[in-house]
């Protein structure tokens, strides 16, 4: 379980997160939604120790962020940031291989090679394995980045808008794969319909605060869309899942 307690984050004079407390249950997919600038990426970055915690505390199972060694956390939790660093000349296979670094620290074993091969296969990257990242399309690169995170074999996976640049087939297959993994997935989504179709739990944020937490049926309502996003949209119920008319 990821437990965020009383986290406040300030940059300059601005308060980005104010007293955020939330529990993200182990197992299943949690979708994080909210308007631009709500603080979703900041919250994810804090959980993944990409930026230092200023106040409050965050634990991932028995690991305390800030206190536990970075390499221990790297075997427990993986993050794909919103704007993942570019490593233009890396090949897809090399990038995915780096996912195993937390385990072998430089000298990959036979087992690591096998996991990389399986991951490439699973993400349909076999044909692209030898290509350099800067020769790929945005969607292909995104797929390679997610594959690296997958090869990291962590219990927890944080993804910041991984559907950016993906077409509908790739988006659906990624979301299905994430569900099938059986890991704890926290994913920032802008498309509420993906959140409501694939997530077990939705956390809605606004202005650096948690606005609502619950199942898609509880959270995705016309009132909430009006409150959080300031837009009036019709919500239909289809097979027990809310769908937003866009």
């Amino acid at each position: 379980m990821i437990k965020v307690s009383h986290v406040t984050h300030r940059i300059g004079g601005a308060t980005i997160l104010s007293d955020v407390s939330v529990e993200l249950a182990a197992g299943g997919v949690t979708a994080l939604i909210g308007p631009n600038g709500a603080g979703k990426s900041t919250l994810l970055s804090l959980i993944a120790r990409l930026i230092p915690l200023q106040s409050g505390s965050i634990t991932v199972d028995d690991l305390t962020i800030g206190a536990c060694p970075s390499d221990v956390l790297a075997r427990k939790l993986a993050i794909l940031p919103q704007s993942a660093d570019a490593a233009p000349r890396l090949t897809v296979r090399d990038l995915v291989s780096f996912g195993r670094y937390p385990y072998h620290k430089g000298r990959g074993t036979e087992e690591d090679a096998q996991i990389v091969a399986q991951t490439l296969h699973r993400f349909g990257l076999n044909d692209l394995a030898g290509r350099q990242l800067d020769t790929l399309s945005g969607g292909q690169r995104q797929r390679a980045q997610v594959a690296m995170i997958h090869a990291q074999s962590t219990d927890y996976v944080l993804l910041d808008e991984p559907l950016n640049n993906l077409d509908i087939a790739a988006s659906r297959s990624l979301m299905r794969m994430l569900r099938a993994l059986g890991r704890t997935v926290v994913i920032v989504l802008h498309d509420i319909n993906y959140a409501s179709s694939y997530a077990d739990q939705i956390v809605a944020m606004k202005d650096g605060r948690i606005h609502a937490v619950g199942t898609p049926a509880d959270v995705v309502t016309e009132d909430l869309l009006a409150d959080v996003f300031g837009t009036r949209a019709t919500v239909h119920q289809i097979d027990g899942r809310p769908l937003v008319q866009v």
Partner: peptide
């Protein structure tokens, strides 16, 4: 440090994600 440098070259966020400091 040579293997760590390979990871650090990937950038702050990716390197941190992979357990580097």
């Amino acid at each position: 440090m040579r293997h760590r440098l390979d990871v650090l070259e990937l950038g702050h966020d990716t390197a941190t994600n992979l357990g580097e400091t």
